[in-house]
């Protein structure tokens, strides 16, 4: 008998197409898995409204579960409660750092104009002497930083709350 824990462990094998080191479980986009009228219903939530990876994740979840022999599956997208970076797992934060992306600091970028940006340690050398290059990065969820010590340019998975 397949249970929820089993479904979750299979979903660990489905990765975020834009940050392949993270699974959909690490990312915190899978909100629930339950049986409704004999079918598995997987509930997911988008990171950003326009995240182009959501459709791919939905299809990857369906095909992964089919591959595991779970045939009747539906994926449903819900908006509430809204995703925040607090949902990123500890495991996910560690994997991000190893991959060269700085994980979200637990601090929203201040809405005060021209405020000092959040200090984000360099994922390569660990230095805190870094600077924000742009609030907007290669995908909706990232900002662009550069390390003043080792000169490494890197993505910062920005805090969203």
């Amino acid at each position: 008998m397949v249970d929820k824990a089993q479904i979750y462990s299979w979903l660990e094998e489905v990765s975020d197409p834009e940050i392949p080191v993270l699974s959909v479980i690490d990312l915190g986009v899978v909100r629930n898995a339950q049986i409704i009228d004999g079918d598995w219903l997987i509930t997911i939530t988008p990171t950003y409204s326009g995240c182009p990876a959501m459709k791919t994740m939905e299809e990857d979840i369906l095909s992964k579960l089919k591959e595991k022999g779970v045939d009747s599956v539906k994926v449903e997208l819900v908006l509430a409660p809204a995703w925040s970076t607090d949902w990123l797992s500890e495991n996910g934060r560690m994997k991000l750092r190893e991959y060269g992306i700085a994980p979200p600091e637990h601090e929203v970028d201040k809405s005060v104009l021209f405020a000092e940006p959040t200090v984000v340690p360099c994922p390569k050398c660990g230095s805190r002497n870094t600077r924000m290059v742009s609030q907007f990065g290669s995908t909706a969820c990232k900002a662009l930083y550069q390390c003043n010590e080792c000169q490494e340019p890197y993505d910062y998975f920005k805090c969203l709350k």
């Binding site: 988008p46 409204s49 326009g50 290059v133 742009s134 609030q135 907007f136 990065g137 662009l144």
Partner: peptide, 20 residues
């Protein structure tokens, strides 16, 4: 380049909101 990316990111947010 940074502003090119910023404007298209904001565009993406807005189009995502429009879809919902």
């Amino acid at each position: 380049l940074e502003e090119d990316i910023a404007m298209t990111n904001i565009s993406l947010d807005l189009i995502g909101q429009a879809m919902s």
